[in-house]
Computed example of a mutant assay.
Amino acid sequence: MMESFQKLLGETLIWVQFLAAIIALIYLPKLKNTYWKWFVAYIVLIFLIEAFSRWGLKNHASYRVYWYDFFGIPVQFLFFYWLYAVKSLKNNQLFWVCTVVYILSFLPYFGLFEKVNIVYSLSYTVGNVLLMLLVLLELFKQIKSENILQFKENFMFYVNVGIMIFYIGTLPFFSFYGLILKDAVLWNDYFIFFMVANHVMYLLFTAAFIWGKPNTY
């Protein structure tokens, strides 16, 4: 039962991402004069990254870890650092600090540690903690905004909630992956949460295009 549900979530995720990409492209004309057009590009790029991993690397599964470690995941963190720090919080210095610290977290890949899973946990944890900081700063900004009651029209509201659910919610799963892997029940439960949170995040991104207004942020 649980394995079937996990398989179902694995099969549907790529199509939820595809839906988000299609909706993003449909709403691109409304966003072409705002920086949210780059969010459209991001959504489409993420779908292509996932599609290439799923089908392009189908017969080379061992390469997927490098595809995500050195491209797929860094693209996500660096884009959100830019979106939060530069565009929403108007703090270029914060963006560069987050970027440099995140890049430095990859140094263990070059020989400081031998176990790849330790290195993976380090870079992902550092990247996620930095993103968590930006999410909290954004949350405080939204709470103090005079337009807080119009959150339904706020693009960044949907993005922020999606990020909190997925990236922050799954931080322990990747940070302590080696330990969680030793407990089959815990791993299965957390993996389902990881997949559900991923679905919810992209549905919230889709909702941002449908209900959000680009002039709200």
Rank of each mutant, 00 (worst) to 15 (best):
Tyr124Met: 04
Tyr120Pro: 03
Phe113Tyr: 15
Leu136Tyr: 09
Asn91Lys: 10
Phe110Ile: 05
Tyr102Thr: 05
Gln93Phe: 13
Pro108Ser: 04
Met132Gly: 15
Pro108Ala: 08
Leu107Lys: 04
Asn128Gln: 15
Lys90Phe: 09
Met132Leu: 14
Ser105Ile: 02
Leu134Val: 04
Thr99Trp: 04
Leu133Met: 11
Ser121His: 05
Ser123Ile: 07
Cys98Val: 01
Val97Asp: 03
Asn91Ala: 04
Lys87Leu: 07
Val129Gln: 00
Phe140Lys: 11
Ser105Tyr: 04
Leu94Ile: 01
Ile118Asn: 13
Trp96Gly: 08
Thr99Phe: 15
Leu94Asn: 00
Glu114Cys: 07
Leu107Trp: 09
Val101Thr: 09
Phe95Lys: 09
Ser105Gln: 11
Leu134Lys: 07
Val97Pro: 03
Lys87Cys: 02
Asn117Val: 15
Leu122Ala: 11
Ser121Arg: 06
Lys87Trp: 12
Thr99Ala: 14
Leu122Cys: 07
Leu83His: 02
Ala85Asp: 02
Lys141His: 12
Tyr120Ser: 13
Leu134Ala: 05
Val101Asn: 01
Gly111His: 10
Val129Leu: 15
Phe95Met: 06
Tyr120Cys: 09
Leu131Glu: 08
Leu83Trp: 12
Leu136Met: 12
Leu89Arg: 08
Val97Lys: 06
Ser105Val: 11
Gly127Lys: 01
Asn92Thr: 07
Leu130Cys: 00
Leu104Val: 14
Pro108Lys: 10
Ser121Met: 09
Val126Gln: 01
Lys115Tyr: 09
Gly111Ile: 10
Val126Glu: 09
Val119His: 11
Val116Gly: 12
Phe113Pro: 06
Val86Gln: 03
Ser105His: 08
Val97Tyr: 15
Leu89Ala: 13
Leu133Asp: 01
Val129Asp: 01
Phe106Ala: 01
Phe113Ala: 11
Phe95Glu: 05
Asn128Lys: 10
Tyr102Leu: 00
Val97Leu: 11
Tyr124His: 15
Leu130Pro: 00
Leu104Trp: 05
Ala85Val: 05
Met132Val: 10
Val100Glu: 01
Val116Leu: 14
Asn92Gln: 15
Leu137Val: 05
Tyr84Phe: 14
Tyr124Asp: 03
Val97Arg: 10
Val101Tyr: 05
Leu131Arg: 02
Val100Ser: 09
Leu112Cys: 10
Leu107Pro: 05
Gly127Tyr: 11
Leu136Phe: 15
Phe113Thr: 04
Leu130Val: 03
Ala85His: 00
Asn91Val: 03
Ser123Asn: 15
Ile118Arg: 07
Val101Lys: 00
Tyr102Ile: 00
Lys141Leu: 08
Val129Ser: 00
Ala85Glu: 07
Leu137Glu: 05
Thr99Met: 03
Lys141Cys: 03
